Amino acid sequence: MRHPLLRNFYGIPIYIGTWILFVLLLFIIGWYFDGNDSYSSFVNSFSFSLPLFILGACVWYVVCYVSMDESGILGFILHHLTAGAIVVGIWVSAAYQIRIGIFGEDPEGINYFIPLHWQVFFAFCVYDYIILVYYLIIYYQNFQDKTIQESELKNLVKEAELNALKSQINPHFLFNSLNSVSSLTLSSPEQSREMVVKLSTFLRYSLGQDLKELNSLSNELNNIRLYLDIEKVRFGERLVLKFNSTSDCDNLKIPNLILQPIYENAIKYGVHESLEPVTINTNCELVNHVLKITISNNFDPESIPPRGNGIGLRNIQERLSLIYGRTDLMKIIKTENQFTVNLEFPQNIQS
């Protein structure tokens, strides 16, 4: 995460202004309340505040790498106690050295400003205040990012739904399916009736999905099987389907209609363009609370692929990034005659 002083145009001026106010506050305390002369008050306040100018900015990196969610409450406290002790030790020591190096020897030793134990206590209080401000900044930035992501996600989900429905109910798919039904009406009435039922069920499922983000794997695969069964009537033995999924994967959640474009690509670029049988393999497994799905198909490397704009796979990548906040959940591997899509779905978010 970018440092807030660099992220905002006003970050550095605000930081410098706050530090100057801190110096003035110490000066006023020493001059007005403690009765010291103005020179001694300035020397004490400046030498004690100068290390904070650098350390205050560096504390940000401690805050970035210490999260209560990841470390737990005890780990969070221990991390900051350790970091605070280091920062306070550097601060008090550096302040004393600045006092000696710039303004000459101090006969009162390290207690020149206030007694050492009060210096340490005061420095710890300032450290706590700084990390509190930084955590508030992180919270505000995360809140802003989440609001923007939610807005983008809603738009993307609507677009994804429309793109999915366009591909599912496009004229070519319906035309080919109805042609297959028509040809089977006389030769195989039972198979024709079965295909009509599957086509109806498939379209009803696709049209009945609302904008909810997550669905069970079993529901998604059931719909995929309907789609593939319909296509299998068209391609016959040229389309071979293999599914391998353990029972503990059935109720795991995946984004709605996210697998459909992958199978459509396999049909369009694999089965449709090949005279030899094309096998679409689907493997699902749960590994460390992550559902891993691998979909692969062979294809004819000598065929001329149909033109396409790649919206389907790109849309999958964007949806995964917005829903899970990661860009490494989809990997595409293409060899000479094999196309593989590896997907990962963490199971630690709520639907």
Score class of each variant (00 low, 15 high):
Phe175Trp: 07
Glu105His: 02
Lys232Trp: 01
Ile295Asp: 02
Pro115His: 08
Ile311Leu: 14
Ser167Ile: 03
Gly75Asp: 01
Ala85Ser: 13
Asn297Asp: 03
Cys284Val: 04
Asn256Gly: 00
Leu25His: 10
Asn297Pro: 05
Arg225Lys: 15
Glu194Asp: 15
Leu211Glu: 10
Asp300Ala: 04
Gly30Asn: 14
Thr327Ile: 10
Leu165Trp: 04
Phe235Gly: 08
Val197Thr: 14
Phe202Lys: 07
Leu214Tyr: 10
Leu291Thr: 07
Ser167Pro: 00
Ile311Trp: 07
Pro306Ser: 09
His117Glu: 15
Leu52Gln: 13
Ser247Tyr: 11
Pro305Phe: 09
Ile293Arg: 00
Glu344His: 04
Ser40Trp: 04
Thr340Leu: 13
Gly35Gln: 03
Leu241Asp: 08
Met195Gln: 12
Val63Glu: 06
Gln97Gly: 00
Ser67Cys: 07
Gly101Thr: 02
Thr282Tyr: 03
Leu259Tyr: 03
Phe339Leu: 11
Asn298Val: 09
Ile323His: 15
Asn281His: 12
Ile293Tyr: 02
Ile110Cys: 04
Leu162Asn: 13
Glu276His: 09
Asn265Glu: 13
Ile333Gln: 09
Asp210His: 12
Leu241Tyr: 03
Lys253Asn: 13
Gln317Arg: 13
Lys292Asn: 14
Ile311Val: 15
Ser200Val: 09
Thr282Trp: 06
Glu159Lys: 15
Arg225Asn: 14
Val43Tyr: 07
Tyr227Leu: 12
Lys331Trp: 00
Val63Ser: 05
Thr279Lys: 12
Pro13Thr: 00
Ser206Lys: 13
Asp248Ala: 02
Ser303Lys: 04
Asn170Tyr: 00
Leu21Met: 14
Leu156Val: 02
Leu343Asp: 02
Val126Pro: 04
Asn163Phe: 10
Asn348Ala: 09
Asn309Asp: 15
Ser182Ala: 07
Lys292Arg: 15
Glu161Ile: 05
Glu152Tyr: 13
Ser49His: 05
Tyr129Asn: 09
Pro115Lys: 11
Leu78Arg: 13
Leu26Thr: 00
Cys64Leu: 14
Glu150Ile: 03
Asn44Ser: 14
Thr147His: 05
Ile267Glu: 10
Phe33Ser: 06
Leu241Cys: 10
Lys166Leu: 11
Ile267Cys: 10
Leu5Met: 14
Lys154Trp: 00
Gln97Cys: 08
Ser200Thr: 12
Asn309Phe: 05
Ile114His: 03
Gly236Val: 08
Leu52His: 04
Leu203Thr: 12
Ala123Asp: 11
Ser93His: 02
Arg238Gly: 13
Asn244Asp: 12
Tyr227Ser: 12
Arg99Cys: 05
Tyr65Leu: 12
Lys158Gly: 08
Glu70Trp: 01
Phe53Leu: 15
Ala57Gln: 03
Val133Asp: 01
